[in-house]
């Protein structure tokens, strides 16, 4: 039997009314669950912080913070835990890597967002994605096979010959496993990261500003320099800071090429021992030495706090940039 249209409409209204209650129940439950789950990142962050703090507590209680951070002797078996060589190692490698990576990345980002045609862009962007996808041990292996011998055989001797008066280029380490090797590998690793952020930032500048500048006869570069840069400077700084943070935390690739010698380096050809390598090389073993484990987790805590600091700084740089934008 065929129902009349009126009957169908009545039925639909009644059915909708009946299921309404259960739909509302589902909605309330989902609302609660989704909101509850959104606390998870916060919870994870707090838990990691607390766990690291608790485990680092024994050494923080027994040694002075200044002694730990500025001590330059690392002899766990004798109870001497000076982090300075590791902090210095991380800083040297990171800063040098950023000196290589930052200008190159920003220039590439400018090219991609301001100069490249769509077809060129479609060609280059996958390359950068691939560079970002390569695992860090592969970078490390490349470093061992290519960069380390290159630094050892060519770069080291050449710079030593040309600038014998510069202590920065002095070489007392003939192996090639050095800060320079670590920094070169690290630079290639963070380039795609900084390009991605800088490119995203630069794309937010409306075309109208470019046209306003080009319309009075500015060249492209003048437009980038006087119109685009002032608007994106904060974002570019944020990108570089986040890249620095990335470089600071990179472990395997650096560990494989940097030499891992706990001394305070004085030249880019010295070996260094970054914080991340300290944890990777020693954690999980040597549990019998008192405070060793606590010292390593203290260095993990230090790494985390440094990353936090970098993030806050980047967020501030971005916020200042966007605040100026809105003014």
């Amino acid at each position: 039997m065929v129902k009349s249209p009126e009957k169908v409409e009545d039925d639909h209204a009644r059915e909708a009314g009946k299921v309404l209650a259960s739909r509302q129940r589902a909605e309330r439950r989902a609302s609660f669950e989704f909101r509850a789950l959104s606390t998870l990142p916060a919870a994870l962050f707090v838990v990691i912080l607390i766990v690291l703090l608790v485990r680092a507590w024994p050494i923080l209680q027994q040694k002075s913070l200044v002694g730990l951070l500025l001590g330059d002797v690392w002899r766990p078996s004798e109870g001497q835990f000076g982090f300075l060589p590791f902090i210095a190692g991380s800083l040297w490698v990171t800063v040098l890597a950023m000196i290589f990576a930052a200008p190159v990345s920003i220039l590439c980002a400018i090219f991609l967002s301001e100069y490249a045609r769509p077809t060129t862009k479609a060609l280059i962007k996958p390359l950068i994605d691939i560079l970002a996808a390569i695992p860090s041990v592969v970078y490390g292996l490349w470093g061992v096979l290519v960069i380390v011998p290159w630094v050892q055989q060519s770069v080291g001797p050449a710079l030593g010959r040309w600038f014998p008066f510069l202590p920065l280029f002095n070489s007392s380490n003939p192996t090639g496993y050095s800060i320079l090797s670590g920094a070169l590998v690290l630079a290639v690793m963070v380039v795609p990261f900084i390009i991605a952020i800088s490119y995203e930032v630069m794309r937010t500048v409306p075309r109208g500003y470019h046209e306003a500048s080009l319309a009075v006869g500015a060249t492209r570069w003048q437009t980038v320099r006087y119109v685009v840069f002032p608007r994106v400077a904060g974002g570019l700084i944020a990108g570089v800071v986040l890249g620095t943070s990335r470089a600071f935390g990179e472990t395997m690739a650096v560990l494989m090429v940097v030499g891992n010698n706990p001394i305070i380096p004085h030249s880019i050809f010295d070996a260094a021992y970054p914080l991340t390598a300290l944890i990777a090389n020693n954690y999980g073993e040597m549990m019998s030495i008192p405070l060793y484990d606590s010292a390593l987790l203290a260095s993990a805590l230090l790494l985390m706090l440094i990353v936090l600091l970098f993030n806050v700084f980047a967020a501030l740089a971005l916020r200042r940039a966007t605040a100026r934008e809105q003014a």
Binding site: L44, I279, L297
Partner: peptide, 15 residues
């Protein structure tokens, strides 16, 4: 999330 994203994986390993 940005901070968690930036935490080095070695720290996650230790944690």
């Amino acid at each position: 999330l940005d901070v968690l994203w930036g935490i080095p994986s070695i720290v996650y390993g230790a944690f």
